[in-house]
Design a protein around this nucleic acid. Sequence first.
DNA 1: GTCATTTGACCTTT
DNA 2: AAAGGTCAAATGAC
Length: 327
Amino acid sequence: MVSVSLFGGHKMNSVMPRRKMENEIPNGKRAMEEELNRGRDMANQLLEVLAYDKSITHLQKEEEGSKSVLPFVEDLVRKVLCSFTNTLLLLNSTNDVSHELVASITLRDVFSSTTTSPKKLESVDETCKNRSILTTQNPRRGYKRKSIAPSWEKDSSILVEDGYVWRKYGQKMTLNAKYLRSYYRCTHKNDQGCQAIKQVQRIQDVPPLYRTTYYGHHTCKSRMNSEIVLEPLSPSASSTLLSFNSSFHCKQENPFPSSLLASTKHELVEVIHDEHSPQNQLSSLEDLLLHDCEVDCDYSRRVASMLSSAESVEFENVFMSSLDFVG
DNA sequence: GTCATTTGACCTTT
DNA sequence: AAAGGTCAAATGAC
């Protein structure tokens, strides 16, 4: 089980401006710490309960006359969600982060850009300051370098259309790479403010292998309905490998529907917006926190019923990432 | 004319 | 300072 210590868990970078230390934690932050710790403990319990539940077969249950632990799980999930909600309320009320930044970072960003540490927030803040200087002195204004962690990585032996419209904005030869890396942004960046970008790098010649790394989320409404293979398929060139790189802190939004995750079909794959997919389950969690300050029992019941043990691990990852963000 | 891509320069991060 | 990421003018395709 991963243990995260708030405020002390992050290595203090020498470059990092010194902020308030442990003995200077304001009440709001202390309360946040307590809330998050509570939530984490409950998430841990949830995992243990689920693991226990899984270990007992239905037959055994019948023999022992034991009942499902689901109601207990539900309760735990509800408490976890309460903790999230309380923390987010505290987050919103804290003045520790600039109002501008709070306004620019939505709750969804908190969950999506889960490696955004305070250090990063500060660097973003600095970037904002610098940019305000640039806007008056440098004609090349609006320059913004990606500061978020990759959200999804996909290795594929074929070039596939992922359902979004991308616009190439650059390419670069990188160190230790034999091929150019191409940079794409969502074509709706300007008209809809969509911040999604991706990088495509050919990593192998024979058989051809491409690594596509996605950053950010699509906020545009341009989703097409199918994944289109751009290159002719050969029997040998059929594998599509999706990976959550373990080095990534965030294993969050998957730009592909779950129905594609396990797909190795040699044909066009229909994109199915499955409301029971893990991705959407997590989205549901986010929505809970986004829209409801008070956790609805029906919602938590729904969430609990949707969670498999694997998904509760994902749930915990999201939770841990939020700790990372706050800590 | 409009829009996408190319490409060198510029900027940030490490 | 090097490497990686982004911008925007130039260019091409339609």
